[in-house]
Design a binder for these strands. Sequence first.
DNA 1: ATACAACTATTGTAGGTACAAATGTATGAT
DNA 2: ATCATACATTTGTACCTACAATAGTTGTAT
Lengths: 151, 151
Amino acid sequence: MKELEDILLTTSQIPLAKKTVLNISYTANIIKDSISNTLKPSDISIEQFNVLRILRGQKGKATNLQDIQSRMVSKMSNTTRLVDKLILKGYVERFVCEKNRRKVEIFITSQGLNFLEEIDPLVAGAEANITSPLSQEELKTLNNLLTKLRN
Amino acid sequence: MKELEDILLTTSQIPLAKKTVLNISYTANIIKDSISNTLKPSDISIEQFNVLRILRGQKGKATNLQDIQSRMVSKMSNTTRLVDKLILKGYVERFVCEKNRRKVEIFITSQGLNFLEEIDPLVAGAEANITSPLSQEELKTLNNLLTKLRN
DNA sequence: ATACAACTATTGTAGGTACAAATGTATGAT
DNA sequence: ATCATACATTTGTACCTACAATAGTTGTAT
């Protein structure tokens, strides 16, 4: 099993706090790479994919940028541009909200829904593959520890 | 404790593999944010900071781009530009390798070393803060699970 | 000696991200 | 009704990132 020290090529002992932070970041990067490569043939980025998934979760309910943003980690300024790109691809529509013209209403199109259905199994496969070295019990423990860490 | 389902505002049960992938990514983003904010007053990005740390670890040994890159997750094309920016800040020097003129030799300057010493405790503080909700034993378990996940 | 392939780094382009400033709309106090 | 303020989104700028194409250098086969 490759320890973080082997990757960083350091002989010295890394403090546990620092090691944990590096370990999470490093693992997340590898995961991102894997999912990213899975999505690449479908010509969509992880971030755009995430927005699409959020919109599907709304089941046709009107969704504004703040709604999307609250389910994402990135800042709203990006969400505007992510939606722009999804509109160009025909996966999403955007309207000015008539009740409050400051807001926008964003919907996933049927084309977007079809697209998601196509790639869902690919992503699920990648996720299964990523997590395959751990047992169900270990995955539960890992999730609990991460949740506790975020507190 | 805030579960991932609360954050994603979904009532449905997320499959464990997907949940784990999301949990790691989400946690890594929060960590990145925290470290990033810690470094902000010092006008350096996490990525530039990482390069600088790697060079310090070389203890004066000549370091080429591949050496740096092998300790990082990102691709080499970025490393050139990260080094460019560190040179502009006076933290790093770059020379053509005389034995193999395809290579470059990169060194941290004393100014770079001083800078690192200043911010080391700030970063260590942030890391301690991030990991504070977990006991030492839990941190070890977390590290082991992440290492095993990466196989 | 030359030509071709491999190696090392850089550059161009197209994405993602944070922050601050700007735009346009709604609300509330007077 | 007017003005100041708050709100929701967009835009500008400066980063980081991946991938592909390029440049320059070295090694190798003939």
